[in-house]
Amino acid sequence: MAIGTAFCVIAVLVVVALASTGRISGHPRSRGTGDASRGYHLPDPAEGDRIAASLQDAVPTAPPEAPALPVPTASSTEVEDLPASDPLQASTIAATPAIGALLHAGDGNDPEHFCTATVVQSPNRNLVVTAAHCVYSDAFTADLAFAPGYHDGVMPYGVWVPSRIDVDPRWVADRDPAYDVAFLQVRRPGTDERIETVTGAEELAFGFVPSRPARMVGYPDGEDEPIGCQNTTEAYSDTQLRFDCAGFPSGTSGGPMLTDIDPANGRGTVIGVIGGYEEGGDDLTSYSSYFGPDIAALYDRASTAEVSPTT
């Protein structure tokens, strides 16, 4: 009986440990500086350079037979109608420049993408938004890069690595689903380019009315193209949005909920990212932390922090 009891206790501890590591368990901690208790991290530049070089060697940065996706520059005063998808089931959509996949270089095998992120407008023009659980579990995630416009196994706008990662300290303290949002300042090693000038950027909205027609986008694990679905976001609680649509599996975490999409350039306004309650939801419903004053304050901190685009 004692042996059986001990075995059960060990088994429970193992299950709890696995359940608490999130979707990026097993990755090494990122080297660098910063203060996790205050919710920010400055990755080691040499580590970022190594990750970028590894990914660039393993994955083409543009298709050999086609140029990179064009970045639309036109704009209009119109917004797309976003009727609910029928059926409410995610399906493959075309990649767009400002939305892409978070990747890790792995251990010498083919690189894998594990979450989704979006370029958003900011004073420094180098900011990406995703879910906090994509970049912080029990420590900030190492081996991390962003490939905007990722499609068909290629990275048409190159590899970008974080120079700063910001999450709310309350996410660090206890993974509070109200704060499952992260902002990353990114850089393209060897250049001083600002990602917003390369890919364009989506806008952000804070304090909006929760019920909004929206398009949700994400990159499923193991797939080379994004999926999307349209429906109306609804309030699930004071701190959570819900979006009912089937077929958003692992890998889509961090993907944007977009509204007010301009038909002239395809860009819109991010009102949420897949995460929050249950770290994103289940096969039928996705969630997002509500973009209220706390997320706005996190954005203000992340977007104005001074970080060199080359280090």
Rank of each mutant, 00 (worst) to 15 (best):
S20N: 13
A131D: 08
I165L: 09
F206W: 09
R175L: 03
D152I: 09
D168Y: 08
D44H: 04
T73R: 08
P263L: 03
D49H: 14
V79W: 14
V12W: 12
S211H: 07
G292P: 07
T259I: 06
T199A: 05
F146D: 01
G149A: 06
A178R: 12
V209P: 06
G268V: 09
R125C: 01
S76G: 06
I10F: 14
L298V: 07
D283Y: 11
F208T: 14
S237C: 08
G292F: 05
T77R: 11
D180M: 03
D152Y: 08
V209C: 08
V154H: 03
F114V: 12
R38T: 10
S250R: 12
A142N: 14
V119H: 01
I51L: 14
A145H: 00
V273K: 06
V154W: 02
Y277C: 04
G280Y: 02
A182V: 07
I51W: 09
R38V: 07
A6D: 06
S289R: 00
P123K: 00
V14T: 13
V198N: 04
S54F: 01
V59R: 09
Q230R: 15
A214R: 04
A205G: 05
D81C: 07
D86R: 05
R188E: 07
G108D: 03
R212D: 07
L103Q: 08
A178S: 12
Y236H: 08
D244I: 10
P111L: 07
F140Y: 13
P70M: 02
S237G: 13
L42H: 14
P226S: 01
S308W: 00
V270N: 03
H41Y: 11
V128K: 04
P28A: 14
A142W: 11
R187M: 15
V79K: 12
W171R: 08
Q89G: 05
L102H: 05
H104E: 12
G275L: 15
Q230M: 11
T92Y: 09
P220V: 10
I274V: 14
V12E: 05
G251D: 12
L102N: 04
R194Q: 08
G218Q: 02
V209N: 10
S85V: 06
A201Q: 03
L82K: 05
G26A: 13
E112W: 05
T233H: 01
V71M: 08
T233W: 02
Q121T: 07
G222P: 12
F243A: 04
D81H: 09
A305V: 11
T197G: 04
P28N: 09
I261A: 01
R31H: 15
Q56I: 10
P97F: 05
R170M: 10
P43C: 10
F208K: 12
P87Q: 03
G254P: 04
T269L: 00
G149L: 00
V307F: 03
Y40H: 14
P220Y: 07
C229I: 07
D107T: 15
S30A: 15
I51P: 13
A11E: 06
A302E: 01
H133G: 06
M257F: 15
T118R: 03
P111K: 03
E78D: 13
P63F: 09
A131C: 12
H133T: 14
V128H: 04
G149M: 02
V119L: 02
D224T: 10
Y40N: 09
N126K: 13
A173C: 02
E80T: 11
